[in-house]
């Protein structure tokens, strides 16, 4: 059977997967750079002792709080948004795999991928 360009072959999926990962890392880096520049311009002369663990403020501990802070152009919030995009990249990769396994009608791997997705979701939306 001749391969059409739109066939969901493993090779083509690998290409798309590679692009997805690269996009995530580049996007995250750009956001972190933007936040970083803002941060250094405003708060570069501040001091902070990192030898004592205090833990981050509540708003930086949850995706919703981070997005809200970033929208207020809080520089630390923007950096955390970049970090969040980075954390979301593997997550998006697994979602993408779930979709492709579903299209390929591969029930075993739909289940396998769904399990990984559940574990990842548990972590990303973890409330301690």
């Amino acid at each position: 059977m001749p391969e059409t360009p739109n066939a969901w072959t493993d090779e083509r999926i690998d290409q798309m997967l590679g692009n997805l990962l690269r996009t995530g890392v580049v996007l995250a880096s750009v956001i972190v750079v933007l936040g970083g520049v803002l941060f250094l311009m405003h708060d570069g002369t501040q001091r902070h002792d990192y030898s004592v663990f205090r833990g981050e403020p509540r708003e930086y501990r949850q995706p919703t709080g981070i997005v809200a802070d970033a929208l207020k152009f809080d520089s630390r919030g923007i950096i955390m948004l970049g970090v969040l995009v980075l954390l979301a990249t593997p997550f998006a990769r697994v979602v993408f795999s779930l979709v492709t396994f579903a299209i390929q009608r591969d029930p075993i791997y739909c289940v396998v991928t769904a399990i990984v997705l559940v574990v990842l979701s548990y972590s990303l939306f973890y409330k301690g």
């Binding site: 972190v32 954390l87 972590s123 301690g128």
Partner: peptide, 20 residues
């Protein structure tokens, strides 16, 4: 790493100033 990073994020271990 993402599977544990979410938990660390929630515990406040992930600091923007160090991460950047």
């Amino acid at each position: 790493a993402a599977a544990s990073a979410g938990i660390y994020l929630n515990r406040g271990y992930i600091d923007p100033v160090l991460c950047m």
